[in-house]
Write a protein that binds this DNA or RNA. Sequence first.
DNA 1: CAGTATCCCTCAAGATACTG
DNA 2: CAGTATCTTGAGGGATACTG
Lengths: 152, 152
Amino acid sequence: MPPRKRMNHEPCPVARSVDLIGDRWSLLVVRDAFDGTHRFGDFQRSLGVARNILSDRLHKLVEAGILKTQAASDGTAYQEYILTPKGESLFPVVVALRQWGEQHLFGRSEPHSTLLDKRTGEPIPPMTPKARDGTTLLPAATEVRKLSLPPS
Amino acid sequence: MPPRKRMNHEPCPVARSVDLIGDRWSLLVVRDAFDGTHRFGDFQRSLGVARNILSDRLHKLVEAGILKTQAASDGTAYQEYILTPKGESLFPVVVALRQWGEQHLFGRSEPHSTLLDKRTGEPIPPMTPKARDGTTLLPAATEVRKLSLPPS
DNA sequence: CAGTATCCCTCAAGATACTG
DNA sequence: CAGTATCTTGAGGGATACTG
């Protein structure tokens, strides 16, 4: 019985994208990376995903050229996972998904946030607190592709 | 052992979106719907997905309010699956995915297309051949959210 | 043609123990 | 802390037979 159907050679770019990142965790890892998460443990706590799965996804994302590893900035022997330009260009995808979710998957007065501050419990609003020019993506953003990316 | 982790009550809208449509088929069904596919058999042939899976996805998309059914236009007793406004608002998501895929998942001279004409084998170019005003989404499109939708 | 039902297999994912 | 290895389960998915 054929395993599962691969779509990474389909002529449709949507199909290839979905084949690569259309699972339950990859895009959430990327989202966290946009929000400044770089370390294994931080991803793990933020996502609540099993460690082996996280390990697998990080490797696959690195292999796909979406993330890259670099030596930890604090001198520890471990690695940090950083978005590559290819990964950063997933920004419009994440934003589009976020906007759609906010508009259609939340009750009228139901609060939403991409991230909750772990200590204060406060919602961290728009998309990334790191947007260099202070642009907030919602509700005003209409030009997804032109929006600035967080610093790499 | 806990089944799988649901994210449809997460405070993050990206997580909820992914929980709903972050699988290998849902977005491709939506893509085909944007391209004018409405009937079970047409989805099935276009996607090459197993019939039971397609049936399941169509039901889930209807239940999610992304598609709706209506009587077939040709008088047969069957149904057609049509995008609702909620479904149509997934347009930016599909476009973003398509653009990212085109830019990063294809070789320099490798042809890509969302759809191949079943009879001629010709690629059907930009996004939807049905865009009423002739707008092509690529490569000029920079304002995703403002782009017109195909007629419903 | 438009689905539904059944069978079965693979793999994603969770839990947890382990190593440097 | 940052991962890797192992085990187990259930969901996702494919093939195909069946019904109206």
